[in-house]
Amino acid sequence: MTMPMLDRELKKGSAELMILSLVEDRPRHGYEISKIIETRSGGTLRFNVASLYPLLYRLEQRGWIQGRWAEKAGQRRRRYYKLTARGRKVLSTQRTTWQSFVAAMSRITGMENA
């Protein structure tokens, strides 16, 4: 695998993991997901409208999340995404994989001792 391809796959995998994690506890709409990612990453990671929604639709198409239009009190009608049972299994697998990957990288690069 070439470096650009590896970089793309890593980003792609990490983006899926982030979104699945954020809708694990409760349904969230797209803008809320993008703001949480930006806030928790301290501005390092940002999803804009052009990159976020194609990804959301792809996850929805795979059956990992489910979007539904809903109206909450005092708010306008929005599309909320929640994790499906199938998505929960994928999330669990991806978490394990990423933890292993990060741990391996840390051991290799010596970052855990830095």
Binding site: N48, V49, A50, S51, Y53, P54, Y57, R58
Partner: peptide
């Protein structure tokens, strides 16, 4: 700025073409 994000790199059409 909002429109710039919408147009960023043609990601929207490219991403949607794969899923929709």
């Amino acid at each position: 700025a909002a429109l710039d994000e919408l147009d960023q790199g043609g990601l929207l059409a490219k991403g949607l073409r794969q899923t929709e």
